[in-house]
Write a protein that binds this DNA or RNA. Structure first.
Lengths: 349, 349
DNA sequence: CTGAAAGCGCTAACAA
DNA sequence: TTGTTAGCGCTTTCAG
């Protein structure tokens, strides 16, 4: 079919073994021989079969990424980060999307990546005990990003901190009646919780009583945000500021406000989380989390693990170090002090 | 290292050949034998090595996707479409991102996907003659999506039509002074051209003279859009409506307007292209192009080609059929008739 | 430094 | 129906 190593060897007048060594830059090859082999390979436009090489060597040269979404900016950005560092090592990326609960079950049950990758990056999928157990069956390096997998290295941000940065900002602005639009993502739950807890904690610290009516739980995404805001607006006494679990949700809320003839931030402040590129375009105040960078770190962890354990599969020999990247408040123009003194100023004004 | 087919065969008391047949649901295996083999495989938690199988069979079970961006909604959505149909055939996805000119050259020069995939989807990268020639070297099925590769099947939309739908809408609304923010994407140029040509054609049909001052050429993205709009606003006589090459660009333009204290669409109309999810959230009028569906069609083309030519690599035997999906005007709230009769009504008002 | 030989784990004729 | 015999294309001891 195609040119093989044997062809090259023959043409260079050496054995396949030597040709192999010569082409993969391994020692014990005379410079002249190496040159000859290289020339032969060049002339024949030879390209080694990674699969055959891998079979013989026991590695695949690929790493898999399991993630819940492909079309959301955040996941794409993380993926870009992963890709950008792995490409330098000539490692290929295999994608496994688990869109819904069924996908998820199927993935962990059948482990489609088994025997196909040297490592797996679990992205944005907090994994439970059973799932983790299944994963271990793959016998490969596992790294978690944006969510954890017990016993394995991970990268992420502190969602509690991020949430506090957002709500604290609102509090410092003088808001006392702060609503929350909490988004649930059936796939990657976990951090929504931390973001919700942050809300309660921030209010508590500010001495603001928690009012259940002020939190709307909706589906992730713009539509959810729009709906949540509508609910909040329907309150006898609506909030003067709203904390949304993500920028998409926040943008949905903004649309509801706009359609209701309310102005942001004059009539109501809105803050999101993530710093989606469109947040900048829409002047949305938010808390930035480094997306691409999380991917880069995850990929470096993979590389490190692969270098450490060249095939070693000793379950105990893993170093489940974790890296938490900082988040940062980005004040734009969707937040401002409450319009009038209808509520008391914050304690630490 | 891990459980092999030989282990299973031994345990089931059959030869590896039979075990292989039994496990891959091929004929000529007694039901009882098949059951026995299956049981053995089950007990040993056996999983065949796809690489070894592929090596022997001459296929990889993977298809590659080359694309310029991972974090843009549009590409992610197309990718989701591809993934969703390929997963059913248990085909894996290998990603190749060519972010800039250097990546691009490197990709076509070194062909990193060579010998690693059964087919390649070229997504959003109009390929030139030399690049195409390199691609052929891979000797695999090639399908183009959102851009073409001469001589190979492709899916896409008609960008000229899309552009006309957008500009015609503005014209029908009564606008005569219509600006364009043309975006150039160093990677995937090609369609921006069609979108620009549509602008000229639409104006010509409406009897509106082409005014070079009214077109701002900027980089793709929100920042570009913002900048382009600023330029247009600086004109002695600014346009009453603006046609942007994409929703992101349009949103950037909207931000500039908002910051300038201008209202959309009262003071100025803005239209984009794509129907990005955030277009809905921002009430942006646009022309929708089916993203996910383009991916699905591309994947089906791959499947068809793979089924047709099970290994056949006869260069002439390809059926380079193309599929063009429809685009559709989505009127929201960023476009309206011009404010006053400062310009003459359109011919076909 | 180089070559021969033995796989890596599976599939595919071809017999039996 | 099942087993035997060859590989797929490369790497890797182990001699030489």
């Amino acid at each position: 079919m195609s040119v093989t190593l044997a062809d090259v060897a023959r043409r260079a007048g050496v054995s396949p073994a030597t040709a192999s060594r010569a082409l993969s830059d391994r020692p014990h090859v005379a410079v002249a021989t190496r040159a000859r082999v290289r020339a032969a390979a060049e002339e024949l436009a030879f390209v080694a079969s990674p699969d055959a090489a891998g079979l013989a060597r026991g590695t695949t040269g690929r790493v898999g990424v399991v993630l819940p979404h492909l079309s959301r900016w955040f996941f794409g950005a993380v993926l870009e980060g992963i890709e950008s560092v792995l490409r330098h090592e000539r490692i290929d990326l295999l994608l496994y999307r688990v869109g819904d609960a069924a996908d998820r079950r199927a993935f962990f049950d059948t482990l489609p990546a088994r025997r196909k990758v040297d490592a797996l990056v679990v992205l944005g999928l907090p994994v439970d005990a059973r799932e983790r157990e299944r994963l271990e069956l793959m016998g490969v390096t596992i790294v978690a990003a944006v969510g954890q997998v017990a016993g394995h290295p991970f990268v992420g941000v502190d969602d509690h901190v991020a949430g506090r940065q957002a709500v604290d900002h609102l509090v410092h602005l003088g808001h006392r009646r702060i609503g929350m639009i909490a988004a649930t993502d059936p796939q990657s739950d976990g951090y929504p919780d931390a973001r919700s807890v942050a809300y309660r904690d921030s209010l508590a610290d500010a001495g603001i009583p928690y009012d259940e009516d002020l939190v709307a739980v909706v589906d992730w995404g713009g539509a959810g945000g729009a709906e949540g805001m509508a609910r909040l607006l329907g309150l006898r006494e609506p909030p003067t500021a709203v904390y949304a679990h993500s920028d998409e949700v926040a943008l949905g809320a903004v649309r509801t406000l706009r359609r209701a003839g309310l102005r942001v931030p004059e009539d109501l402040s809105v803050i999101g989380i993530d710093d989606h590129p469109l947040a900048d375009l829409t002047d949305l105040t938010t808390v930035r989390q480094p997306a691409r960078e999380q991917g880069e770190v995850a990929a470096r962890m993979v590389l490190a693990a692969l270098a450490d354990a060249p095939g070693a599969d000793v379950p105990g020999a893993r170093a489940p170090g974790g890296v938490t990247l900082p988040t940062q408040l980005v004040v734009r123009r969707s937040t401002a002090p409450p319009r009038d003194g209808v509520t008391a100023p914050p304690r630490d004004g």
